[in-house]
């Protein structure tokens, strides 16, 4: 019989470990227990418990805050898959509350109204893992430096428009390629230019990839959108309004799960795309006044 000793060498490994388990999967926004169950039955790897999906937050306006703990707890009790919840950028007390509930991941999210205009949460202080959005490599590495265990694109949430998520994925991929070809002696000035920790740039040069997984979020509303971001290098997909604002959420949820699992097979994406009712209505990003674009929140 082998001997096992419990250790706690690195909680970062455990935090990233859960993200590894979510790879190749779909994380769905849900606003009640019924939707959470639909998501789980459709094969979601996790649910994001929210009071309002991003498209409703956008339409209704006002200050968007952390969801009520009662809602998050009811959803956590109803499903067997991991449950995530959002807190406002910089609102470390909302994060403390979510940690006390025992959620599996916290999304420090630009979809909610920021609580701090200059500081994100010091995520290293928490045992619960965090996911944060990023539009470019510098932002991704600042969040990882603060302790984020998972990065996602900051595609313009609630628009049903994939263009911003594609932009962020391509941007981060291009910047990683650039780092790989830089000389070691050039990494410090690159760190200064990006506003990113030098040690993380060294890690990227060594490993050829981000030190944590990179998922896509924002604007995914069809199976083809989901497969597009996967082919561009995202390792899993968050779907917000795209499922429960479509005409047939059950079918759309299953179809997107199918397309993500077989993202490299056009035949499968075709099959997943057939017989679907209408996806959510879309919104052009340039129709959103500049001050109201969510991706510009955070820094």
């Amino acid at each position: 019989m082998k001997k096992i000793t419990e250790t706690n060498i690195s909680t970062l490994d455990l935090k990233v470990g859960l993200a590894e388990m979510l790879k190749g999967g779909v994380i769905m926004d849900v606003v009640n227990v019924e939707q959470a169950k639909i998501a789980e039955d459709a094969g979601a790897v996790a649910v994001m418990a929210l009071e309002r999906v991003p498209s409703d937050i956008r339409a209704q306006g006002g200050v968007a805050r952390m969801s009520s703990p009662d809602l998050v707890m009811a959803i956590a009790d109803a499903v067997s898959i991991p449950v995530m919840a959002k807190c406002r950028i910089g609102h470390f007390v909302e994060a403390q509350v979510l940690e006390a509930i025992g959620v599996d991941y916290i999304d420090e999210s630009e979809v909610l109204t920021p609580a701090d205009e200059s500081h994100h949460i010091d995520k290293l202080k928490f045992q619960v893992p965090f996911v944060c959005g990023a539009v470019n490599l510098g932002e991704a590495l600042r969040r990882i430096g603060e302790g984020a265990a998972l990065i996602r694109t900051k595609g313009e949430a609630g628009t049903g428009n994939i263009v911003e998520a594609v932009r962020h994925l391509r941007q981060i991929n291009q910047e990683i390629k650039r780092i790989i070809f830089l000389e070691d002696s050039e990494l410090m000035s690159e760190a200064k230019r990006l506003g990113a920790p030098h040690e993380l740039l060294c890690k990227i040069k060594r490993d050829g990839k981000l030190p944590v997984p990179n998922f896509a979020a924002g604007g995914v509303s069809t199976p083809a959108d989901a497969a597009l971001v996967m082919q561009l290098g995202a390792e899993a997909v968050f779907v917000g309004s795209g499922i429960f604002k479509s005409e047939n959420p059950k079918k759309m949820a299953s179809a997107i799960v199918h397309a993500v699992a077989r993202f490299n097979s056009p035949k499968d994406i075709l099959e997943a795309s057939r017989g679907l009712s209408a996806p959510m209505a879309g919104l052009l990003v340039n129709q959103i006044p500049i001050g109201e674009r969510l991706a510009e929140r955070g820094w």
């Binding site: 082998k2 001997k3 096992i4 000793t5 419990e6 250790t7 706690n8 060498i9 690195s10 490994d13 455990l14 470990g17 859960l18 388990m21 956590a76 067997s80 991991p82 449950v83 940690e99 025992g102 959620v103 599996d104 991941y105 045992q127 619960v128 893992p129």
Partner: peptide
């Protein structure tokens, strides 16, 4: 039994024969 140790906060690292392993949910 699924998730029998609890949620992510109950995930833990361990070593077996000095090899690091992780119990995640």
């Amino acid at each position: 039994e699924r998730n029998a140790y609890g949620r992510q906060l109950d995930s833990f690292n361990a070593t077996i024969d000095n090899y690091p392993v992780a119990f995640i949910r």
